[in-house]
């Protein structure tokens, strides 16, 4: 965008050239349009289309795309694999999000209270898994889950107890959830910890002099103040959790329990790239996206949208 340099010097309110903000925004808006807005619109369009096969389905003209109404949605929602995957991910979210954020908050409060000498070591260690890609984290845990590798099997074996194979049956969900908690706690801890550090000390020093315990200070003063950070971490965790993909895809070769439709996103992938049914996949992804967006947006509205402020500039 070279527009700005040619624009006559019509002063804006702040006395600068009127074209400048648009040229600064141009790269972002072009990329946003091409790689976010257009794909979303295209997904919506595809979800309403289908292929019509005429005659024997041979030759170039035999396959044409026609409007399908809502039939893809009906097909997607009534797919016997879909609802189980939604339940599974719902349960998975109910495990992961509270466990991860609860641990993150606990660790952040412990660090902030400053009553330990292992603070720096623990903070760095707990944050470290954020540097490990979900694929690699799943790979490491995946091996550790194998009975032939797991140290738990050895220890329990000595005690005469047979350890369960956590990559089978109902254990699998917990095994995957553990990977997500392991990978996500540190980052959320740092986010919460940063907000805690920003609280002016005098806000709770007075309470401390009056004899309030660390626990009371945490619950009555610190947690309410960092609530906006908690809301943000909650929303981002929720969005990430509902789209779980890399962990089960990586564990799949190690576990017979994980099918190719184990999570909704895995089903979208299978429909699009294994079955070449992009229409049904588009419909399913629209359903997931709308549901995710509704949940996160609804949650932000519910808590009064305290996390994103929009009008301070």
């Amino acid at each position: 965008m070279t527009v700005s340099t040619r624009t006559p010097r019509t002063a804006s309110r702040r006395g600068r050239r009127a074209g400048a903000p648009y040229s600064f925004l141009a790269p972002a808006l072009i990329l946003f349009t091409l790689f976010m807005a257009a794909p979303i619109a295209y997904a919506g369009y595809l979800s309403l289309r289908r292929v019509k096969i005429s005659g024997l389905g041979l030759g170039a003209g035999a396959r044409t795309e026609v409007w399908a109404g809502l039939s893809n949605y009906a097909r997607s929602l009534s797919d016997p694999d879909f609802l189980p995957s939604v339940y599974r991910v719902g349960l998975y979210g109910l495990i992961v999000v509270p466990a991860m954020l609860g641990l993150a908050l606990l660790m952040a409060l412990l660090l902030d209270a400053g009553r330990t000498r292992v603070g720096t070591f623990s903070r760095t260690s707990i944050f470290l898994p954020y540097a490990v890609p979900a694929v690699v984290g799943s790979l490491l845990w995946g091996f550790l889950y194998l009975p032939r590798v797991s140290p738990v099997t050895d220890v329990l074996g000595k005690l005469g107890v047979t350890a369960p194979d956590v990559l089978t049956g109902n254990w699998t969900l917990w095994a995957v959830a553990n990977i997500a908690v392991w990978g996500g706690t540190g980052f959320n801890m740092i986010v919460i910890y940063t907000s805690l550090r920003a609280i002016p000390t005098d806000l709770f020093e007075a309470a401390r002099l009056d004899g309030a315990s660390d626990k009371q200070i945490a619950f009555r003063i610190k947690i309410p103040i960092v609530t906006p950070s908690l809301i943000m971490t909650f929303v981002f965790s929720l969005i990430a959790t509902l789209q779980v993909f890399a962990e089960p895809m990586t564990l799949k070769p190690l576990s017979n329990t994980i099918s190719s439709t184990w999570t909704p996103l895995m089903k979208v992938y299978r429909d699009a790239f294994v079955r070449n049914d992009v229409y049904s996949a588009a419909a399913t992804s629209v359903v997931i996206a709308v549901a995710t967006f509704a949940v996160s947006f609804g949650f932000l509205k519910l808590v009064g949208n305290r996390a994103f402020n929009q009008e301070d500039a």
Binding site: R16, F32, M36, A272, S285, I288, S296
Partner: peptide, 29 residues
Amino acid sequence: KYDFPGKRFVFNVILAGVLVPGVILAIPQ
């Protein structure tokens, strides 16, 4: 740091973009 027509709209669109789940983007992209 600038005031310009359409600023609110652009900002709201980008804010909504923060919440867009990647699932809807992958296949159409």
